[in-house]
Design a protein around this nucleic acid. Structure first.
Lengths: 326, 326
DNA sequence: CCACTTTATGTCAACGTTTACCGATTCTCG
DNA sequence: CGAGAATCGGTAAACGTTGACATAAAGTGG
């Protein structure tokens, strides 16, 4: 029996009698034989590796991203390689080289890597397919999965405004992250829709981390007049704002309402539980992996739009209330 | 120029003149040429892939594990493939097949997979090297990186006992996780050292998740007499216990002290901040990856012990106090 | 029963790289 | 200047699998 026959038997290819097929499979089982993936990759010109690159430090975000992608990959044909990378903005070509050297079939790009034109250029030049998860710019480039950040930002700001808040502090995330700008744009729309002017001096910049969030939230809370609410651009910074308020003797939500973003684990374990926006990270990652694989397998029928928007969900919990409410 | 010469030039092998080497490298740069990894793997009989398998749901644990391993892999020679797997205990062979099919050079096993003898047997039979992170049983098998769970459990229990607590509720994690047993053993030692009897009826079983932790902690808190302290086997369940206490009108730590385990993100963002034990997950993962790679590269000098213990660190924060203290 | 189709099995080459080996050129030193 | 060594470049084979193609065997129809 030639290797060829074995190959045909194991791959359920035609032109093998059922008897031989059974015998081969039994023997393979017996010997714990597994085809050599490197050889398969060499001839198929594919590695069956999907990369996932990200930078955001939040563990829950990273894990949601991974689990979403892995959920789509669970048949085991493709494998997921994690490639975190810091400071993409300052050295996109370096990440590009890393990705190209990794021998991937395709790559899932989370923020902020998905918004680096230099990186996308490199990947396209080398014909390495990619899917972008919640990019902010060049939304018609490649496979794109987004949440409408602006609509989400508008929803959460409108929530605070509708409860009567007028002095609202805003804690931005890392400005190089696209989400930061989109969410801010949404805040502005909500304000302008109600013709409430935004006090630009109440806008401070964090970097999505707890520590910096605490510091900048504190600067807002020692101002006079003090804002009655804080819009934080993610949950970690929102929780930090609550801690800063507590350390200043302020009760949440009685003296200060706080809203976050992302519906992360801490938004539920925090006290009071955070009003936040659920970004369907897992579903978006699943979708991105799904469409990337469809493209790799050539099953993309060309009719599916390259871009798909997933809906946000405003989660109103205990950290927001009307100003001065009990 | 033959492919051979190119290969030698790029790999800094001898027998190539410096002039040719420079020319080749310049051309490679120019053309964005990258050697085909599948071909290299085929001939080297290695995939340069390291697997990481885990089951624990806690995002911060998973991310610490990954970051630790990735920290060691950052030269880019090896790549990290993530392979989460649920319910290992009930189907270890299935995970084994998954790992063997993935074409890995080596595998990092986190709990509870690292404690499945059937799995270890399969890996050994197929000569797939592995490193075990905080296993509980068969500690002399393969590369082992541990924290002394028992000593850590003893330390945290001793902390509560030394403050005067005598009625202490214990919330176990998933009993199939090895850490759970080791930590419990440490609790018992602390009690017996002070000759305080353990009330077995105050021991309840969770599964390391917040939701179940909340439920079982609640059953402890509605008992009479009510325990004055709770030892939870991880931070998620400890935070859940705090929430359960609060929902019953109990103040932490005035009416109830709570101690956790793992020094996870939530232990810091929780309020009050959790007394907990720092398990140096990142360092252990780094160490496991380091020694696995040393073995793969044949650089293991044979003198390094296969097992290495990392020290725990008791972090006393605001969630524990003497019973009835203000 | 022969020509013809279908099915089963085998042979060969190819994927892109590296290792082993060989011949040619250049260098070193007596 | 010549012998031996070191250096440089090249050729062939190998890694394990699969696709294209060939051959053999079996089935089918007139």
């Amino acid at each position: 029996m030639t290797p060829k026959t074995v190959s045909r038997a194991l791959n359920d290819a035609p032109h093998v009698s059922e008897a031989v097929r059974q015998k081969v499979k039994a023997a393979a089982e017996e010997l714990d034989y597994h085809p050599n993936i490197a050889a398969q990759s060499l001839i198929a010109r594919r590695s069956f590796l999907i990369g996932l690159t990200y930078e955001r430090p939040s563990p829950s975000y990273v894990v949601e991203l991974q689990n979403g992608a892995l959920g789509r990959l669970e048949d085991g044909r493709y494998r997921l390689v994690v490639l975190p990378f810091s400071h993409v903005a300052s050295r996109p070509e370096e990440l590009g080289r890393l990705l190209l050297r990794a021998g991937l079939d395709g790559i899932l790009l989370a923020p902020p890597a998905c918004d680096q034109p230099a990186l996308l250029n490199m990947l396209e030049r080398q014909k390495l397919p990619y899917a972008r998860i919640t990019p902010h710019s060049e939304l018609d480039r490649g496979i794109v999965v987004t949440m409408d950040e602006t609509a989400a930002g508008q929803a959460v700001a409108a929530h605070l405004l509708s409860m009567g808040h007028r002095l609202i502090g805003i804690v931005l995330g890392d400005p190089s992250h696209a989400a930061s700008m989109g969410r801010m744009e949404g805040y502005r729309r909500a304000f302008s829709e109600l013709q409430v002017p935004i006090d630009e001096s109440l806008i401070v910049t964090g970097d999505f981390t707890y520590d910096v969030g605490y510091r900048v939230a504190r600067t807002l809370l020692i101002r006079s007049p003090r804002p009655t609410a804080i819009l934080a651009q993610n949950d970690d910074m929102a929780v930090a704002a609550i801690a800063a308020a507590r350390d200043l003797g302020l009760a949440v939500p009685h003296d200060l309402s706080v809203a976050g973003f992302d519906n992360s684990e801490v938004s539920r374990t925090a006290w009071p539980q955070l009003t936040t926006v659920n970004q369907p990270v897992r579903q978006m990652a699943w979708d991105a992996a799904d469409r990337l694989i469809a493209a790799l397998d050539g099953k993309s029928d060309g009719t599916a739009p390259l871009r798909r928007d997933h809906a946000h969900e405003l989660l109103i919990r205990a950290s927001t209330a009307a100003p001065g409410a009990p």
